[in-house]
Amino acid sequence: MSHVLQKKDFWAGVLYVAFGAAAFWIGRDYPMGTAGRMGAGYFPTALSVILMLIGLISAARALTQEGEAVGAVSWKSLALVVGSTALFGLLLPTTGLVIALVVLILISATASQNFRLDLKAAAGLIILVTFCSLVFVKALGVPMPLVGSWFGE
């Protein structure tokens, strides 16, 4: 039997309670109103209390029942995929679409153990960047600068 602190049910419970508590705390100042004229706080308060209850039940289930363990977390993939996405948002207005795309593709690709920067990968990179520049910026008119503010106008 795996330890409680390794169980999925326990951590899911923690997640629910955390979300519920945060929603309750942030929403504590929203006016409750009455049943006839419900205020902005009525629904959120009710929901966050229910969510915390569900979280407690889930955690309790982890204590009393067998359950699966969470398993190893692949921090590397998580950081690379999420990080490269956020970096894209940061670079899009400053360096422009072309560089932002190259950075996003190269960084996220390193998350895979099969990734090698060979001729095939380079060709794929160029095709993808060209495709996006032509289709989204030129044809569909999405307002993304191809070259960003760091490089003059």
Partner: peptide
């Protein structure tokens, strides 16, 4: 990576 690009 292509999926990621289109999502973004």
């Amino acid at each position: 990576p292509a999926i990621l690009v289109f999502c973004a």
